[in-house]
């Protein structure tokens, strides 16, 4: 053990204390900052708990905010009224621009035929299955790319590129490879959803504060513990927005595939309904299909992703101040 080479300065002795100490001689005085500011454990406990309650926000009661429900409904009503108003002006032929009531009537007809239910069910089922398989494929790939630098350098640009490429571009290739079967539809869905989920997970991992890894190292986490206990939960918000985008891409790709690839063993989905409407030059069918596609998208967002995301963000204190 080496001896200390640094000079050891003497602290001033009590007698040498100058001016300041004469003011400070009284034992009752509180000298925070330079000396002890509390008078014992109990005093400290009391002070701290006082400060804690001063600095913590009072818990706010959670109640239903009706404006969240009423405002979107009102917006919808206004849009429909505007639509009806425009149609009633009679500027365009009624068969080219049908009114809300015409479309509603077509809804009823399609429902009675059973083709509405069939189309929604077929598309929704395909969309969900395709999306879930995409998640299962994309998650391990995304984690691997995010954690292994050479792999990411090699494949990262390609994956980002695939996200830009419209998945409709794969439809002709898929038809040539798989014919008019479900495989074609699923292939197009995968090519749409997988790159965007991978990218979401990678950016989620990228946004983890480096501090978290240091804490993990200091706490003695192994590689696996680091990935499972720290990296994955920390990346969850980014991963979730990747999943949301992945679902949107699945749904869009699915519609594109269904519009283009018709016949064979491909069933009757919403895209097929849209295509049928065009073939029959029936605008009410076309609008019904568009509204249904939109409605499914909105419902999945409202019923599945929004609650999960809200819960996740609220638990982490990331919701305050947002306009959600």
């Amino acid at each position: 053990m080496p001896s200390n080479t640094t000079p050891l300065a003497e602290a001033p002795a009590p007698g040498e204390a100058s001016g300041a100490s004469s003011d400070a001689s009284s034992a009752e005085k509180v000298h925070a900052a330079l000396t002890r500011s509390s008078t014992g454990n109990e005093d400290l406990r009391e002070l701290e708990s006082g400060l804690d309650s001063l600095q913590s926000d009072a818990a706010r009661a959670v109640r239903i905010d009706w404006s969240r429900i009423l405002l979107p409904v009102a917006a919808l009503v206004v849009l429909i009224l505007a639509w009806q108003f425009y149609v009633s002006l009679g500027l365009k032929r009624r068969d080219l621009v049908p009114g809300p009531l015409d479309v509603l009537g077509q809804f009823g007809t399609l429902w009675a035929e059973g083709s509405l239910q069939e189309a929604v069910w077929t598309s929704l089922q395909r969309g969900l299955v395709g999306f879930l398989i995409s998640v299962a494929i994309a998650t391990p790939i995304g984690l691997l790319l995010a954690q292994v630098a050479p792999l990411r350098r090699a494949f990262g640009p390609l994956i980002s590129g695939l996200q830009v490429l419209p998945s409709v571009a794969w439809v002709p290739a898929a038809i040539i490879w798989f014919g008019l079967t479900d495989a074609t539809v699923y292939f197009v869905v995968f090519m749409g959803a997988i790159p965007s989920i991978i990218n979401g997970l990678i950016s989620g991992v990228d946004q983890i504060p480096p501090q978290y890894r240091s804490v993990g190292t200091v706490l003695g986490a192994s590689r696996l513990q680091m990935a499972v206990q720290i990296i994955l939960p920390a990346a969850l918000p980014g991963y979730l927005s990747g999943l949301k985008q992945g679902w949107a891409f699945s749904w869009r790709s699915l519609m594109a595939a269904e519009i283009i690839a018709v016949g064979g063993t491909i069933g009757f989905g919403l895209g097929s309904m849209l295509n049928q409407g065009r073939d029959l030059a029936d605008m009410t069918v076309v609008m019904s299909a568009i509204l249904l596609i939109l409605a499914v998208g909105i419902l999945i967002e409202l019923l599945v992703f929004a609650p999960i995301e809200k819960r996740l963000l609220r638990r982490r204190g990331l919701l305050a101040g947002s306009t959600r």
Partner: peptide
Amino acid sequence: EWNVTEEHRTDAGLAGQ
């Protein structure tokens, strides 16, 4: 380096110096 004694903990004048 400097040593800080128990007296510095209670005497603000010393600590200030």
